[in-house]
Amino acid sequence: MRTDHVILLRALAALLSYPDAALRAALPEIGTVIREARDMETATRGELLALIDQLARGDALDIEARFVDLFDRGRSTSLNLFEHVHGDGRDRGPAMLDLRQRYLEAGLEPSGNELPDHLPMLLEYLSCRDAAEVRETLRDCAHILRAIGNRLLHRRSRYAAVFRALLELARAEGLDPHAPVPAPEDLDLTWEERPAFANDRAPPCRPADFVKRG
């Protein structure tokens, strides 16, 4: 993984953001980042560009409704990672506070209504970190990324390409279109047995979003 992981992680974070007018306006820039990204499989690049094309050409209301159906209704494809680890259990609160503190120590102030474990926010945080920590963190949650990605494949959603790209960055086992999709309660809970994210310290940074947040 080279230093271009910074801008690539921000591009992938943007693609997992709500597809409003601001995101659609940023799609040409995001597409350029994907085309120029190194250390990415050709097939994955093509799938990401197909997602960008779908978001750009599709009816805005349909695109937004599809996003809500995929990511905001139910746990199985939730972008809040601790949903797949702690559910609504009492351990989720402390884990959330710990993650937020890590963001603050890196100079990233969480904004908006999203929770700290929201995947796009985690990717923005990782864009401030070195390549070794990026890979380690993505490997820590690879089984969750794979579970979500496989579910998206079963739904024939182009968003699965984002999860394929993240697993490639982690150099972890990729998606499997033939894998049985487990029920949410059957997700591997081994992530609870170790810190969810690396605890290294890095100089503060202020990542710039592709899309300005309100």
Rank of each mutant, 00 (worst) to 15 (best):
A179H: 02
H178L: 01
R164G: 12
L187K: 00
P184T: 03
A160K: 09
P184C: 04
H178T: 08
L166Y: 03
R171L: 07
T190G: 15
T190D: 14
T190Q: 12
E173N: 07
A161P: 10
W191L: 14
R158S: 03
L167Y: 07
L166H: 02
F163I: 03
L166C: 00
A172L: 06
H178R: 12
E185M: 05
V162Y: 02
A161M: 02
G174T: 13
L169K: 04
D188C: 11
L175H: 08
D176M: 04
A172E: 14
P180E: 04
A160Y: 12
A160I: 05
L169H: 04
L187W: 14
E185F: 06
Y159V: 11
V162T: 13
A183L: 14
A165E: 01
L175Y: 07
P180Y: 00
T190W: 11
D186H: 11
P180C: 03
P180Q: 04
D188Y: 14
P184Y: 07
P180K: 00
D186G: 05
L187H: 15
F163M: 04
R158W: 01
G174I: 08
T190S: 15
A160H: 15
A172P: 11
P177N: 01
L175A: 02
A179D: 11
V181G: 00
R171K: 11
V162H: 06
L175V: 06
P182A: 04
E168L: 10
R171Q: 14
V181S: 07
D188N: 15
A165F: 02
L169Y: 03
L175S: 10
A161Q: 04
E185P: 12
R164I: 01
L166M: 06
W191I: 14
R164A: 15
L166G: 04
L167A: 09
Y159E: 09
F163D: 09
A160P: 06
A160G: 10
R158E: 01
H178G: 09
D176N: 15
L189A: 12
D188W: 13
R164H: 12
W191D: 14
P180A: 05
E185C: 06
A179N: 11
R158I: 01
A179V: 04
A183Y: 03
R158G: 01
A179F: 09
L187E: 15
Y159G: 09
R171V: 05
D176Q: 10
V181F: 00
A172Y: 13
A161G: 07
